[in-house]
Amino acid sequence: MSRTELRISGFGGQGVILSGMIIGKAAAIFDNKHATMIQAFGPEARGSACSAQLSISEEPIRYPYIHRPDILIALNQDAYTRFEPELKDDGLLIYEEDLVDLRPDQRPTIRTCGIPATRIAEELGRKIVLNIVMVGFFTAVTGLISPEAIREAVRDTVPAGTEEFNLAALEKGLRHGMNVSANT
């Protein structure tokens, strides 16, 4: 099937929605595919559970919701606990490895790829770009969108004046992802 379904989840403030925006924009604007994103949030702002559903397809997307995602990006433990069970048996779990402990009985059919995105962002000097590191990692690990498209999407989305810093964070994530892909 040409449609890939993705859920991104974490705390409000970790950049969940922006991650989805960037991946969706890369697909829909710069890779010329179709993408639909649904955001779920409560009346709270930071610190609460936050989740985005993103469908990417070669065909126009009519039904916008996701029940059994192909890919889960879990930025914290709660996201993993809550959404891992809905992941397809042959799905892909991408997780923040310093913030998520996988269960001992984690389904072996699911491919798991961890990255210390927050630590990498801190080493770069600003924790806030952890989501951009994650987006880079996602791009390299899945091959779902082209590196050129994701670079354009980051440049087009982040606040003016922060482009270079964000692109540096993206490259870190991309490189980390290429190493993981090479080793599996």
């Binding site: 925006m21 829909a28 639909t36 649904i38």
Partner: peptide, 9 residues
């Protein structure tokens, strides 16, 4: 709300 907060091209 769904259409208002749905993001597409």
């Amino acid at each position: 709300e769904c259409v208002g907060h749905m993001i597409e091209r």
